[in-house]
Lab assay of single mutants.
Amino acid sequence: TVKFKYKGEEKQVDISKIKKVWRVGKMISFTYDEGGGKTGRGAVSEKDAPKELLQ
């Protein structure tokens, strides 16, 4: 599970739902399947990112 803040809201998403991951400076950005055909997005700092996300 990845915990992150998006627009001031605390969120979390299961690693299995993450589609795409990329690095922006010291942040790790990602998109994930929100269900219902929607794609969500989020970002975590490199130090807070789970190891599975960095692979």
Rank of each mutant, 00 (worst) to 15 (best):
T1Q: 13
T1D: 05
T1G: 05
T1M: 15
V2H: 01
V2E: 00
V2F: 14
K3I: 13
K3P: 03
F4Y: 06
F4E: 00
F4R: 01
F4S: 03
K5F: 15
K5D: 06
Y6E: 08
K7R: 13
K7E: 08
K7N: 12
G8F: 04
G8Q: 04
G8P: 00
E9L: 08
E9G: 08
E10N: 12
K11Q: 07
K11R: 14
K11C: 05
K11A: 04
Q12Y: 13
Q12V: 15
Q12D: 07
V13Q: 01
V13F: 04
V13P: 00
D14I: 07
D14E: 13
D14G: 07
I15M: 12
I15G: 02
S16W: 10
S16R: 11
S16P: 04
S16D: 10
K17G: 04
K17C: 09
I18Y: 00
K19Y: 13
K20W: 08
K20L: 11
W22E: 03
W22F: 06
R23N: 04
R23T: 04
R23A: 05
R23Q: 08
V24S: 14
G25C: 04
G25S: 04
K26L: 10
K26D: 12
K26P: 09
M27V: 12
M27N: 08
I28W: 04
I28G: 00
I28P: 00
S29C: 13
S29D: 04
F30E: 00
F30C: 00
F30K: 00
T31K: 05
T31L: 14
T31R: 03
Y32T: 01
Y32E: 00
Y32V: 02
Y32S: 00
D33I: 08
E34R: 10
E34I: 15
G37E: 05
G37P: 03
T39C: 08
R41T: 10
R41H: 14
R41D: 03
R41S: 07
G42Q: 02
A43R: 15
A43F: 15
V44A: 02
V44F: 03
S45Q: 13
K47F: 11
K47Y: 11
D48N: 13
D48E: 12
A49P: 02
A49T: 03
P50S: 06
P50V: 04
P50T: 05
P50D: 03
K51L: 15
K51I: 15
K51A: 13
K51S: 12
K51R: 12
E52L: 10
E52I: 11
L53C: 03
L54M: 07
L54P: 02
Q55P: 06
